[in-house]
């Protein structure tokens, strides 16, 4: 039976070097819409084996969210293999995939996806508890403080601004302690200044040793990335590191 208290798998990031490794080989994801087959991803190969701030860049419909869902095992590929922290997700059972999500990746969604019935603190505590961390409430308070929301701990989602909600979502992801953060358009619903704050938070996580993958259509964001993957029509059309290294976040504008 699945359970939060059971030992982490051997492939846990905190237990070995494969903890942040992501391997996609020949991955395809097709959707049948009426009589049409939509190729959201088509023969994608991607390998991430280091702590870094990776930006997957692409226009709407390019397949970047699908890519993130496959990495995070929210979805299964039509063809190809996905390995996360050494775990082959394509053939994994439902329980194994759930365990991989619980111990390896943390999601940050464009639309925050906080539980409306829980306070900010409880949402964060939920992440820590699910990941099996000791003293989840203490962890949650610390993380919430670290994102600057210590004074909003008892507020519910609808009582927070968009930026605050996204910071709570990031805090929830951080509270898991998982080595990979997957952020889907994390600044998509935020104004420039709040978006920059969020990027600073995510960038700091990469510098602290986590792998952060951000998908976005905003080319400006790719300037602060360690690595940029560009997608178009379901294919990776470019995979490069910004020339001269990542720009300072303070230089961004959109």
């Amino acid at each position: 039976m699945e359970g939060v208290a059971e030992p982490r798998p051997a492939v846990d990031a905190r237990a070995g070097s494969e903890g942040t490794r992501i391997d996609l080989d020949g991955v395809c994801r097709y959707f049948q819409v009426g009589d049409t087959v939509v190729k959201a991803l088509d023969d994608v190969n991607l390998h991430v084996d280091e702590s870094a701030f990776v930006v997957a860049l692409g226009a709407s419909g390019s397949g970047k969210t699908t890519l993130l869902n496959l990495i995070g095992s929210l979805d299964a590929p039509t063809a190809g293999t996905v390995r996360l922290a050494g775990v082959e997700l394509t053939t994994a059972s439902r329980a194994e995939r759930t365990r991989a999500r619980r111990s390896t990746v943390s999601f940050i969604f464009q639309s925050f996806n906080l539980f409306p019935g829980l306070t900010a603190l409880e949402n964060v505590q939920f992440g820590a508890d699910v990941a099996g961390r000791d003293a989840p409430e203490t962890v949650a308070r610390q993380v919430l403080e670290s994102v600057g929301l210590g004074d909003r701990a008892r507020h519910f989602a609808h009582q927070l601004s968009g930026g605050e909600q996204q910071r709570v979502a990031i805090a929830r992801a951080l509270a898991t302690g998982n080595p990979i953060l997957l952020a889907d358009e994390p600044t998509g619903e935020l104004d420039f200044h709040t978006g920059v704050q969020i990027l600073e938070l995510l960038r700091a996580q990469a510098e602290a040793g986590k792998t952060v993958i951000v998908v976005t259509h905003n080319r400006e964001i790719s300037r602060v990335a360690d690595r940029v993957i560009e997608l178009s029509s379901g294919r990776i059309v470019a995979d490069h590191r910004p020339v001269g290294g990542p720009a300072a976040i303070a230089d961004l504008h959109w």
């Binding site: 699945e2 929210l74 329980a95 759930t98 999500r101 619980r102 999601f107 990941a131 929830r172």
Partner: peptide, 16 residues
């Protein structure tokens, strides 16, 4: 259901 989905994304065990 969407909240259940969020739980799934966070890796919450099915029984929970």
């Amino acid at each position: 259901r969407r909240e259940i989905g969020i739980g799934m994304a966070l890796g919450v065990p099915t029984w929970r």
